[in-house]
Write a protein that binds this DNA or RNA. Structure first.
Length: 643
RNA sequence: GCCGAUGUAGCUCAACGGUAGAGCAGCGGAUUUGUAAUCCGUUGGUUGGAGGUUCAAGUCCUCUCAUCGGCUCCA
């Protein structure tokens, strides 16, 4: 009998008869290891524990401790769920069921929708199938046979997949009892290996077959699973906590913004919310002074001639608010760039003026399809910390380098330390010469590498007019939000025939850099609310200090202190209601007001205040001067700390 | 836009097809209070909107609007 040599992770190797399984290899090391193995990794590829090994190879048994374990476990859970659905609803057709970041899902085609009660039944049936401890077995077969099998089972989606995948690779199916699934594997060796209290079905959602909106909409069941009950519970707790810092809930509870059905997806900022909003804008204005930007104000409504010239009428019209007035068609601006091109083009420019950095906080309106809008993070009416830099090609690199610094410095203030960077390169359908694209991409690439930034390349995902860099941060619920964007544009200057006079006294074409650091102020604020769970750093807090006089006789002194603080530029209120201190403290805490100053007889006598911070509670007595000095220092440095 | 869910007082939630309610908030009064809820009283609603079924609709049906979870989209 032929023999094979199996090399283990510790470097040792053993000889086994050909056809030995990872399971058997494991048993030769330790029966406990074999029993704990979910799957195995051989020559870098994942295999089932019962898959015969037929040549010399490396082998690593995958236990729960392995990083590959969770994915395999979840994938087997997905099959288990589909198995249960088919038993309960034989008419449902199975589509695909992949593992995702926090769990897995499975798509089904069925006329009747799945109800929450159905989910409970499915979960219960999954546990029954676990109790049966049905073996799960892999079978490799020619794609024609796989397709024929699924045709017999009237599973059109699986049949289609078998046909498509079979053209390029060998195919396999996994069978557990009467349930067959088209799958690459590997899987746990039996349904009994899933622990019955480690998964949970979460929700039902519509999803198009193959993600194409022209295809049929299927029903997707989202679920999650972990290797232990404890981890599952921790995950569910995290979801609960995320809900508590949802900016839509906090926005209402803290009185920051509201929405009205008559202005769908267009937030109203209250006086408090507007304070936060304007502090964000002021921060950018401060940077603009330092970085040499000039701020402009441009119109909201333009004749569509502008949008035809810019290309928006052709490429962006479905996202624009259009209106016909006086037999003329107008469009509300969705972006500032075309307006800035008109501004640039309205006078002649010398190369000596460049780079020209034109900033604009103008309101933008984009018609977002109903169903895609969300709180502050996806809206129809918003402003960006938008700017367009008109420069010479050789200035691109230093401008972008400086933008990187600006992004880093801005995000640092909020404690966003690791935005993910995406670099999108030239798409198929693009404008501009090869030479200038190469230069643009090389510049971006060089800068990214020089920054030692970790970045992901999205080949061919750039704008048609130039490559772009996006910065993405994660919010409290793990959703990723694109904030900053930097785009190189050779197209609009061409379309608007922009020029400047070069050193040779000849007209030259400027390059445009579109850039936003916060992105949309609305979205940025939404992300910030979640990031801080509503507890804004002092400089952003709408109400920075609340004075809490203990009794009526302390109110007058409290007003004196309040005037002193207001005079120093702090945002202060006095809670003079005849309530107990505990009541006032509770309310101030719930509003996440950074500082509470309790004022009673002792403070009155010593011209002091008793300081309480929202984060650490009672800090004892300080003089008013000491408090003002400390608070101002925190505001001016935009500190994230309160003391 | 598509699939599904939800919509009752400012907020959180009740109400079998049979008289729309509670707590908190608000308002009035009492209380003068030392670091997360003092007590009493009280206002508040075209049950998102429009139709329909029924003796009777918050409840059932149709349409519509908004929001939520996804899909698609997201220069």
């Amino acid at each position: 009998m032929p023999e094979i040599r199996v090399t283990l992770p510790d470097g040792t190797s053993k000889v086994f008869p050909s056809g030995a399984t990872p399971q058997q290899v494991g048993e030769s090391i330790s029966p406990r290891l074999a029993a704990a193995s979910l799957a195995a990794k051989s020559d870098g590829g994942l295999v089932d524990v019962y898959r015969p090994l037929d040549h010399d190879c490396t082998l690593e048994l995958i236990t729960e401790r392995s990083p590959d374990a969770l994915g395999i476990y979840r994938h087997t859970c997905a099959h288990l769920m589909a198995n249960a659905v088919k038993e309960l609803f034989p008419e449902a057709k199975i589509a695909i069921g992949p593992v995702i970041e926090d769990g897995f899902y499975y798509d089904f085609d069925r006329d009747a929708p799945f109800t929450p009660e159905d989910l409970e039944r499915i979960e219960a049936r999954m546990r029954e199938i676990i109790a049966r401890d049905t073996p799960i077995r892999r079978q490799e077969l020619p794609w024609q046979e796989a397709k024929a099998l699924f045709d017999r089972q009237q599973e059109p989606y699986k049949s289609e997949l078998a046909y498509e995948r079979g053209q390029n690779e060998p195919v396999s199916i996994y069978r557990q009892g009467a349930f067959d699934d088209f799958c690459r594997g590997p899987h746990l060796p039996s349904t009994g290996r899933i622990k019955p209290d480690t998964f949970k079905l979460l929700s039902v959602a519509g999803a198009y077959w193959k993600g194409d909106e022209h295809n049929k909409m299927l029903q997707r069941i989202y679920a999650t699973a972990f290797l232990s009950r404890k981890e599952l519970e921790e995950h569910l707790t995290r979801l609960e906590q995320a809900k508590a810092r949802d900016h839509r809930k906090l926005g209402r509870d803290l009185g920051l913004f509201m929405l009205h059905p008559w202005a769908p997806a267009s937030p109203f900022f209250t006086a408090k919310g507007a304070i936060v909003y304007n502090e964000l804008v002021d921060l950018m204005r401060e940077f603009y002074r330092e970085y040499g930007y000039q701020e402009v104000i441009t119109p909201q409504v333009f004749d569509v001639e502008l949008w035809k010239r810019s290309g928006h009428y052709e490429h962006y019209r479905e996202n624009m608010f259009l209106a016909e007035i006086d037999e003329r068609e107008f469009g509300l601006k969705p972006m500032n760039c075309p307006g800035h091109c008109l501004l640039y083009g309205s006078e002649s420019h010398s190369y000596r003026e460049l780079p020209l950095r034109i900033a604009d906080f103008g309101r933008l309106h984009r018609y977002e399809r109903s169903g895609v809008t969300q709180g502050l993070t996806r809206v129809r009416s918003f402003a960006q910390d938008d700017a367009h830099i008109f420069c010479r090609p050789e200035q691109i690199e230093s401008e972008i380098r400086s933008l990187f610094e600006l992004v880093r410095r801005t995000y640092e203030i909020f404690g966003f330390v690791d935005p993910h960077v995406y670099f999108s390169t030239r798409p198929e359908n693009s404008v501009g010469s090869d030479e200038i694209w190469q230069r643009a991409e090389a510049a971006l690439d060089g800068i990214l590498k020089a920054q030692e930034a970790v970045f992901t390349v999205n080949p061919g995902d750039g704008a048609f007019y130039g490559p772009k860099i996006d910065f993405v941060v994660k919010d409290a619920i793990g959703r990723e939000w694109q904030l900053a964007t930097i785009q190189l544009d050779f197209n609009l200057p061409e379309r608007f025939e922009l020029s400047y006079t070069g050193p040779e006294n000849a007209p030259e074409r400027p390059v445009m850099i579109h850039r936003a650091i916060m992105g949309s102020i609305e979205r940025f604020m939404g992300v910030l609310i979640e990031h801080f769970a509503g507890a804004f750093p002092l400089w952003l807090a709408p109400e920075q200090v609340r004075l809490l006089p203990i009794a009526d006789r302390h109110v007058a002194y409290s007003e004196v202190v309040a005037s002193r603080l207001r005079g120093a530029g702090l945002r202060v209120t006095v809670d003079a209601r005849p309530e107990k201190t505990g009541y006032k403290v509770r309310e101030a805490q719930l509003l996440k007001i950074p500082y509470m100053l309790v004022i009673g007889d002792r403070e009155l006598e010593s011209a002091s205040v008793s300081l309480r911070t929202r984060s650490t509670g009672d800090r004892g007595s300080v003089t008013v001067d000491t408090f003002v000095e400390m608070a101002l220092r925190r505001v001016e440095s935009r500190s994230l700390e309160l003391e």
